[in-house]
Amino acid sequence: MTEKTPQDETREKQKREPRDAAYWASYAETLKVAGVAEGATNINVEGRRAVGPLQGFGKLWQKTYRVSLKGAETTPVDVIKTWKENYQEFWPEGNRFYAPLAGITPGEVALISGSLPGGVKLSTGVMVLYADDESFSLMTPEGHPFSGWITFSSFEEEGTTVAQAQVLMRANDPIYEMGLRMGGHKMEDEIWQKTLENLAAHFGVDEPVETNVVCVDPKLQWSQYRNVWHNAGIRSAIYTFTGPLRWRRKGSAR
């Protein structure tokens, strides 16, 4: 019998199923929406590629929002289970998250309806990139206001359970970058602060949400300016304004 070399051992180790295998989405070239819930619009998600913090246009930001669930008798696993099951309920008013039929599980795609200034509805979505018992991450598609992912997690810190949302993102194109600078960042901060407040309130906690914002890369990625072609805000506006035309066409086709 021949002895195993260190290389053999490495190869064997790599072949074994990794502990995180069940938590990651499988690779797919483009996104597929399993079902469109009533009220949702799937005009900016189906067929789009998922994009990470390296593909966007604007400055790269890491924003961390966290709340300490002081006094709540809960565990990180309970917090994440609750968050996954009630994601929409914790979101502030004006935004709608249409959870995938299979729930927040790796590879599933959720549709989102947000509000833009002027009463225009923003139709976009997210893919569940990663989900385990103590965290989950959502990754954005091309055309979304930002390119990157958001990780929701919970952990113990000095005997207290903490809930955290961490965004790693760039504005997807020059228009969104301008929008973020003109109040978009503030709006985004308010969304996640309110979400964490609502989550804490669910556990009977009224603690302040800590916000920590770091500009990881101040450079604009001009090579990505063409991302504007997929801009979901513009496409949603066109879709909204041409609604009567589509309605008339449907009527005359009957």
Binding site: D20, G52, P53, L54, S135, L168, V216
Partner: peptide, 12 residues
């Protein structure tokens, strides 16, 4: 083992 925060570390 690697989770999405680990991937985030590689980005930074």
């Amino acid at each position: 083992y690697m989770n999405s925060s680990g991937i985030g570390l590689l980005v930074t």
